[in-house]
Amino acid sequence: MSAPRIAVLVFPGTNSEDETVRLLRACGGDAHLVHWSRADTLAAYDAYVLPGGFAYEDRIRAGAIAAHDRMVDDVITGCERGKLILGICNGAQVLLEAGLVPGTGPARRPTAAFTHNAPQAHYLCAHVYVKLVIEPHRSPITAELPPGAVVPAYAAHGEGRLAADPAHLREIADGGHVAFVYVDADGTPVRAPNGSALDAAALVNREGNVLAIMPHPERDAWNYQHLDRGGRTDPLACSGGAALFASFVAAVARS
């Protein structure tokens, strides 16, 4: 049996595919870009990663058109079969629009969204830390992280604020769907820089096989990306945000 293969989905407008596939490979994953015109090949993959960008120019709403793309048909089927799925930034928005996360409603009937930042609605690029607030084994994707792991990342989005109606928000909070919250470097909780409800940076579905994270761990995942935080000795080695990718790849290998 061959090693499990990870597909990194490329929609028109996706822009973070190269660094995502590069880090997955550095973490030992057999990762491949799958382009929208090759959607027919997607079903054969064992896990899916939806990277950042502006899929279909975020027409109608962030992630809305991509959520109805032919490629996401296979992602939804894969989710039902327990395949592991990771969405980052725009990929996270797509997973919420596709209803896979928090997964409290039917597919493609979203019950929450990552939407316009507040109180300032503009795009924000800022270094952040996020902290794992679920028990690591709650999701296979986070299983290799230590409890309460603090992961560095970059927020780089105009629409990263979790929003839902009060009933769904309660369901998200009570159902343990908030996987990561924004913290400072020491792990102390801070208000989300984008006004996100529950200060949530990432959500997980009930089954734990789908994780949607707004900030980009892959942009603070190599030593050269944080030279002054101990990155000088081996600038090309992985560290920081790579831990989440390594945990994902390990989970795929187990699956």
């Binding site: 493609r108 939407t115 839902a164 769904h168």
Partner: peptide, 9 residues
């Protein structure tokens, strides 16, 4: 089906 996400609209 598409034009409105009731969570935010």
């Amino acid at each position: 089906r598409l034009l409105c996400n009731p969570a935010i609209e």
